Computed example of a mutant assay.
Amino acid sequence: MIVGMHNEDTDTVEALIVAADHPSLAGDIDEFLTRLQVERRYFGPTASSRPKPTRALLASLRQRGGFRMAVFVEAQVVGLARIDGAGELFLAVAPEYRNEGLGTELGRAMVERARQLHYTRLVMRSSHRSGAIRRVGDELGCMVVDGHHGRTEFILDLLPSEVSA
């Protein structure tokens, strides 16, 4: 799937979203996750819009099981998502591509694939009140459940709604 992304520096950048579990992509994915692992943590007003991925998120993105999709821009992985067998969605985007809509487009591609694979519900979790994840959840139509200690769940029911006769 090819998506257009508007960037401050350029008019439009093409991004390619692909299935990411083929062994030939392992090196690209490892490089992407390593870049995220050493990313600088933001504090203050930018923290919610540019959250550094947690170690738990990075570990979940590395795992097999379920399926993964990646976003490529100019032959480089700039986003990765995974849905595990239980329907939990994990998603991360490189810092230089955040707030460009790639996370939302990747989320949409994951939802479409999850429907094809007959998942009935997806859940994203955030240990912080992340503005970035909240925007993705809102765009995907998730129900937001705010929990204790700043934890938030974004739940998306994938069952088709019944039409009453």
Rank of each mutant, 00 (worst) to 15 (best):
residue 136 V to H: 06
residue 123 V to M: 01
residue 68 R to S: 15
residue 37 Q to A: 11
residue 39 E to N: 11
residue 160 P to W: 01
residue 157 D to T: 02
residue 56 A to F: 09
residue 69 M to P: 07
residue 58 L to G: 00
residue 113 R to C: 11
residue 160 P to N: 01
residue 7 N to G: 07
residue 79 G to F: 00
residue 43 F to D: 15
residue 121 R to H: 09
residue 82 R to K: 12
residue 44 G to H: 15
residue 79 G to N: 03
residue 66 G to C: 04
residue 99 N to G: 07
residue 106 L to W: 03
residue 119 Y to D: 02
residue 112 E to M: 09
residue 129 R to E: 14
residue 25 L to P: 12
residue 13 V to I: 00
residue 79 G to S: 06
residue 55 R to Y: 11
residue 104 T to G: 01
residue 67 F to G: 00
residue 3 V to M: 03
residue 10 T to F: 10
residue 124 M to K: 08
residue 85 G to K: 04
residue 150 G to K: 04
residue 87 G to C: 02
residue 68 R to V: 06
residue 26 A to R: 15
residue 111 V to R: 04
residue 24 S to C: 11
residue 72 F to D: 04
residue 25 L to N: 09
residue 97 Y to N: 11
residue 149 H to P: 03
residue 59 A to G: 10
residue 89 L to G: 00
residue 73 V to T: 14
residue 112 E to Y: 12
residue 163 V to E: 11
residue 146 D to F: 08
residue 162 E to G: 11
residue 131 G to E: 12
residue 130 S to I: 10
residue 8 E to P: 15
residue 1 M to G: 09
residue 139 E to I: 00
residue 136 V to K: 10
residue 90 F to M: 03
residue 88 E to K: 06
residue 27 G to I: 03
residue 139 E to Q: 08
residue 37 Q to L: 05
residue 81 A to W: 04
residue 99 N to E: 12
residue 73 V to F: 06
residue 9 D to S: 12
residue 164 S to T: 15
residue 4 G to T: 05
residue 99 N to F: 05
residue 76 Q to A: 14
residue 19 A to H: 12
residue 22 H to V: 03
residue 113 R to V: 09
residue 38 V to C: 03
residue 150 G to N: 04
residue 152 T to M: 14
residue 165 A to D: 12
residue 147 G to Y: 10
residue 117 L to W: 07
residue 133 I to R: 01
residue 34 T to I: 00
residue 2 I to S: 13
residue 74 E to R: 08
residue 135 R to M: 06
residue 11 D to M: 06
residue 128 H to L: 09
residue 135 R to D: 09
residue 153 E to D: 13
residue 2 I to W: 13
residue 163 V to I: 06
residue 57 L to C: 01
residue 71 V to N: 07
residue 148 H to Q: 12
residue 133 I to Y: 00
residue 88 E to W: 08
residue 64 R to K: 15
residue 39 E to C: 08
residue 53 P to W: 07
residue 122 L to W: 00
residue 52 K to T: 10
residue 83 I to V: 03
residue 83 I to W: 01
residue 118 H to R: 15
residue 115 R to C: 07
residue 41 R to T: 07
residue 93 V to L: 13
residue 84 D to R: 02
residue 1 M to N: 04
residue 15 A to I: 11
